[in-house]
Design a protein around this nucleic acid. Structure first.
Length: 728
DNA sequence: AGCACGCCGACT
DNA sequence: GTCGGCGTGCTC
């Protein structure tokens, strides 16, 4: 009797063997329902064998194999294997957590579930059916046929509205071959999509990449904001589409999906496109996934989880804003979707394009070393558009009131007079980051995290931005009883308040997670901005990413200095790319933009590079620093992260783990250190840094070491390996 | 991850 | 005497 080896969603690295009499080699990659302990669960068949190491009496029989949808293709299983090994995470968990929830339960996929969003239409055979041949008393059938003849296609919802009996009829007609699912075709014609003329740079980028569509290459498309990277993507995708290939487009955030989706749909109005992100419900996600898996969807637009979608005809991958840290998952399986995408492209032997205005130093390093192919777009695509003028306001000279200095206020006034929009960027939501007692220096702290509570004045609450804890505003200082407690520092709400006071007639809008939480709020806000129903925008980084605001001509940046002298070696890189992105919001249309940055350190090299729009100088400087300090990309890192209720237990565990490691020349192990934010949600956290100049040796070390760590009988400690960490 | 088993204290 | 606390170990 054949034995199937099944991957199951349990934190154990092994597969589980079952008997399955009807299993054959074609079943690899299919879902299977099996008994597991007392439960009945669904796993994925990873292998078929005639023998097993497990004693026969322990071996159970599978309940049944689900064959209603195609198996996961070998290429995807290969990606799962790699991901599991590279990130040291159990295979079954990698696979099952990446699948749509509806494929994880013990039920077969019901066809109607994907019909629900899949329009149906008459086949050639169906069109030949004469309504006269349907008995007149069969009114539902006649009605349904007429509806089909009138509309090119109907969704299941529409069909159900005709009559409850209509869906039964539909199944019969499907079997007769009268109706079939149709690929989703945008019915509204595109708004006469204007296809822009390419600049010489864009042209050359497109021809270079499209000339090599048949083989693996990692292209780093480094284009300044407004250089028209999207247009380059569109042309390359067009080329892939013409070969019948699928394109996977990864983007960092869910907020950017609608914008890019609109652009793609306008250009490729007849091409089936699916959007995969965490904001979908279970049915929507499954529908999109199945369309991708069947090769029907040609463009798959999605956030990091979309990298795990089965794509039989994959011909091109694009990672937009490749430097963005959201591509790295920060809990559970700590994978980098960008890095997995590169692996996938290599295995599939197809090109991958990494696009950014400020590439990650890792990618830049690979590009200048020739591991990636470097393509540069140095000028803005819109004619006459110039890069914004960046100036600094020295806050040591110009004292600010509520965070806003006089020169900045003057500039806003001027901008208002010219009827243009202003954006004030402050990456801190709430009213003020601290609540301080003026007499004893007490400040409001979170009980569960080692962080300060943020003042939210509007709803009279103190909130922890790390764990979500909320408490009421104290009347007096809990430590000394003094009533003289006051918010200290600036957040978006306070800046909003102060701008309202300065410019009472201006239309002011604050945009941060607090104001965009409502569903569709984001779309409404974008509309408000585009139709110029607002003069001054105050926003966090939410606003910085990838949106074009045509009327925006002034950007004011507050409080950027905090990241200048951070302990995190990636802080400068992040600050630069963030400021570059925000600055890029200004002066998109024919007017040059103006950026004013309030700082105590106007002479800082980072600010100088920003002013010169010189990514390369800064990148070279940072690379030199990293080389001297022995940081990535010159070394490969991994963390052993651990948490427990008591930091002492954590540090002790890490010490023991470090002790287990066999000292090698190739591997450097550092002392355990508490995490930047020691307490988070009531847990105390610390980590152990492991470095090596060889990725291979680091991997080999981690594999052996994690096995040893799991033999350590340390109670109450949760631990995890984080490969290529970006947060400390 | 669940879930059972098992070994200790504190209750009717 | 048992009820339930959680520490330990297994699931094909």
């Amino acid at each position: 009797m054949p034995i199937i080896r099944v991957a199951i969603n349990v934190p154990v690295g092994t597969l589980f063997d079952y008997q399955a009499e009807d299993a054959n080699v074609l079943d690899i990659g299919l879902r299977v329902c099996v008994p597991f302990g007392k439960k009945k669960i669904t796993g994925i068949i990873m292998a078929i064998s005639m023998e097993t190491q497990i004693p026969i009496e322990k071996l159970k029989s599978a309940y049944g194999i689900f064959r209603e949808i195609n198996p996961l293709p070998p290429a995807l299983l290969n990606l799962f294997h790699f991901c599991s090994q590279y990130y040291h995470h159990p295979l079954g968990m990698v696979i099952l957590n990446s699948l749509p929830a509806m494929l994880r339960n013990n039920k077969p996929v019901k066809l109607k579930e994907w019909w629900a969003q899949h329009p149906l239409g008459l086949t050639d055979l169906g069109r030949q059916v004469d309504i006269a041949n349907i008995p007149a008393r069969n009114r539902v059938a006649r009605r349904l046929l007429t509806e089909f003849q009138n509309a090119t296609n109907l969704t299941v919802q529409q069909i159900k509205q005709i009559s409850p009996r209509a869906s039964k009829l539909l199944i019969e007609w499907k079997q007769l071959g009268w109706v079939a699912e149709k690929p989703i075709i945008q019915t509204t014609p595109s708004e006469t999509a204007i296809i822009p003329t390419l600049t010489a740079e864009q042209e050359s980028a497109v021809t270079t990449v499209t000339a090599r569509l048949e083989q693996f290459n990692t292209w780093l498309l480094h284009g300044v904001t407004g250089s028209g990277k999207t247009e380059v993507y569109l042309r390359i995708i067009e080329s892939a589409l013409s070969r019948g290939k699928q394109t996977l487009v990864l983007i960092p955030e869910i907020n950017l999906t609608p914008q890019l989706e609109a652009v793609f749909r306008a250009r490729f109005c007849t091409i089936p496109l699916v959007n995969l992100h965490s904001g979908l419900n279970d049915t929507e996600r499954l529908t999109g996934w199945l369309q991708a898996q069947r090769g029907e969807a040609k463009i798959i637009l999605g956030t990091r989880l979309a990298v795990f979608t089965p794509l039989p005809e994959l011909g091109l991958i694009i990672v937009d804003e490749e430097h963005d840290s959201s591509f790295k998952q920060q809990d559970g399986l700590r994978y980098s979707a960008r890095d997995l995408a590169i692996f996938r492209a290599r295995e599939t032997n197809i090109p991958i394009v990494l696009g950014s205005a400020t590439p990650s130093l890792e990618s830049y390093f690979n590009a200048i070393n020739g591991r990636y192919q470097y393509i540069r777009l140095a000028s803005r695509a819109v004619k006459n558009a110039r890069l914004p003028m960046i100036q600094y306001i020295d806050t040591r000279i110009h004292k600010s009131q509520d965070g806003l200095s006089v020169p900045l206020l003057k500039a806003i006034e001027k901008c208002l007079a010219e009827q243009r929009q202003t954006l004030i960027f402050i990456n801190r939501r709430g009213y003020a980051p601290v609540l301080l007692c003026k007499s004893c220096a007490w400040s409001a702290l979170c009980q569960r995290c080692s962080s300060r509570l943020v003042v939210h004045l509007r709803d009279k609450k103190l909130r922890c931005h790390h764990c979500g804890h909320e408490e009421n505003f104290p009347r007096a200082c809990p430590q000394c009883g003094n009533q003289d407690i006051a918010p200290f520092g600036q957040g978006t709400q306070r800046v909003e308040e102060s701008l309202i006071a300065h410019f009472p007639s201006a239309r002011i809008l604050r945009i941060d997670r607090d104001s965009t939480r409502r569903k569709n709020a984001w779309q409404e806000i974008l509309h408000t901005i585009h139709t110029h129903q607002v003069d001054i925008l105050i926003g966090t980084q939410l606003l910085a990413k990838g949106h074009d605001f045509q009327n925006l001509s002034l950007v004011g940046i507050l409080n950027a200095d905090t990241s200048l002298y951070s302990t995190d070696f990636r802080a400068s890189e992040r600050l630069f790319s963030q400021l570059m992105q925000v600055s890029g919001r200004a002066g998109r249309a024919n007017a040059a933009g103006h950026v004013l940055i309030q700082t105590e350190f106007p002479d800082h090299p980072l600010y100088y590079s920003l002013q010169q729009h010189d990514y390369d100088v800064l990148a070279q400087t940072l690379l030199t620093e990293r080389k001297m300090a022995g940081f990535p990309p010159y070394v490969y890192q991994a963390l052993l992260r651990a948490e427990a209720h008591d930091i002492k237990i954590v540090l002790n565990f890490l010490k023991q783990a470090a002790h287990l490691a066999k000292p090698t020349q190739a591997i450097q192990i550092f002392d355990p250190v508490p995490a930047q934010l020691v307490r988070l949600k009531g847990m105390e956290r610390a980590y152990l840094l492991i470095q090596s100049s060889s990725r291979k040796q680091l991997q080999a070390f981690l594999t052996e070491w994690s096995v040893q760590i799991s033999t350590l009988a340390i109670r109450k400690v949760r631990w995890v390996v984080d490969v290529d960490p970006i947060e400390f």
